[in-house]
Computed example of a mutant assay.
Amino acid sequence: MALSDMRALQEEGHGESHDYVHGSPHLKHPELRSWITERILATVRASVPPGTRPRVLEVGAGHGSLTEHLLEAGAQVVVTEMSGPSTDILRARFAATDVVVVHDPDGDVPVEGDFDVVVYLSVLHHIPDYLAAVESVIGRLRPGGAFVSFQDPLWYPRLRRRSRLAARGVYLAWRLGQGEFRRGLGTVARRLRGVYDDTHPSDMIEYHVMRQGVDERALRDLLAPHFTSVEILPYFSTQSRAGQRLGRRAIAPNTFGLVAAGRTDLR
């Protein structure tokens, strides 16, 4: 998928009326949301000496759910967003603050200066060449800084088939429960045939299925030479509330977070 295609998708699917919470496990499930938020904030706090205000770059901020927490934690925040309507919402929401909102229609993170932390929350799987994007952005980190990413699907070929099918079944049960039987059935039929329709919103919103998820080990290997530690944090997530409770206890992780800390000065 080209960046122009992704931009069109963002504009179509993430307008002013879009509900990010409805389809986002990391936003709709309080326990999961709390764990992810606290882990990100702990990393932000650890990136600078006590009493220092950290400078944070949040790439793909959506409507600013995480931005609010970063601001409350005392960070100086710069956010980027590809969707024009979402950018307008961010600017209105944070108009009375010093949050800097940057419209990024080309996905090249056009911001200035260095940062203590770079955060991607449910973003990497939307980027066609996510490895190149990460490699580019870590050059904006100060020595000792951190790179954080959460809510991306684990690399499918390394998942056990039984666990992958269970996670997929929970997701499809949720999708059908939204009254989208025909849409869901059509999506399943195309995936069983290995066919993906770039004109169909449900296919392209989850187009990471085409490339087998996100390769967490490739990200680790990319980041390891530039940081003193790189930690992969696998966990289970799904849109269904009942499925989330079941999955945490009985289904292997299908999602991951990644925290790379202690940026070394190798520029």
Rank of each mutant, 00 (worst) to 15 (best):
245 R>V: 14
99 V>N: 08
14 H>D: 02
63 H>E: 07
85 P>R: 05
72 E>H: 13
112 E>A: 03
13 G>Y: 12
212 Q>M: 04
130 Y>A: 07
154 L>S: 04
54 P>W: 00
149 S>D: 02
103 H>C: 04
64 G>K: 01
141 L>I: 12
134 V>M: 10
19 D>P: 13
230 V>K: 04
93 R>C: 06
214 V>L: 05
244 Q>C: 02
96 A>P: 04
92 A>W: 06
21 V>P: 01
152 D>N: 15
115 F>R: 07
120 Y>S: 01
242 A>D: 14
233 L>V: 11
74 G>C: 09
218 A>R: 09
48 V>S: 11
266 L>I: 14
202 S>G: 00
123 V>Y: 01
57 L>S: 00
53 R>E: 12
235 Y>A: 07
51 G>K: 14
169 G>T: 13
254 N>K: 06
241 R>T: 05
223 L>P: 11
91 R>C: 01
136 S>P: 06
126 H>F: 13
28 K>T: 12
124 L>S: 00
230 V>T: 10
123 V>T: 10
92 A>R: 14
46 A>L: 13
260 A>R: 09
228 T>V: 15
150 F>S: 08
144 G>K: 03
175 R>S: 02
161 R>L: 11
213 G>N: 05
141 L>Q: 10
10 Q>R: 06
75 A>L: 00
167 A>T: 13
113 G>P: 00
217 R>Y: 06
80 T>N: 08
184 G>K: 00
13 G>A: 08
120 Y>W: 02
70 L>A: 08
163 S>A: 13
194 G>N: 03
74 G>H: 12
208 H>L: 06
64 G>Y: 08
182 R>L: 02
183 R>A: 15
74 G>P: 12
87 T>F: 07
186 G>D: 01
259 V>Q: 03
229 S>I: 07
261 A>L: 02
168 R>G: 08
99 V>W: 08
47 S>M: 05
200 H>S: 03
236 F>K: 14
9 L>N: 01
230 V>A: 03
156 Y>I: 09
123 V>H: 05
25 P>Y: 01
42 A>H: 07
95 A>V: 09
11 E>D: 11
16 E>A: 11
252 A>H: 06
11 E>S: 06
88 D>V: 14
248 R>T: 07
13 G>V: 06
30 P>R: 06
100 V>K: 11
57 L>M: 02
177 G>C: 15
155 W>G: 03
196 Y>L: 05
95 A>C: 04
222 L>G: 08
209 V>F: 06
153 P>N: 12
11 E>K: 03
47 S>C: 02
89 I>V: 14
104 D>M: 11
202 S>D: 09
16 E>W: 09
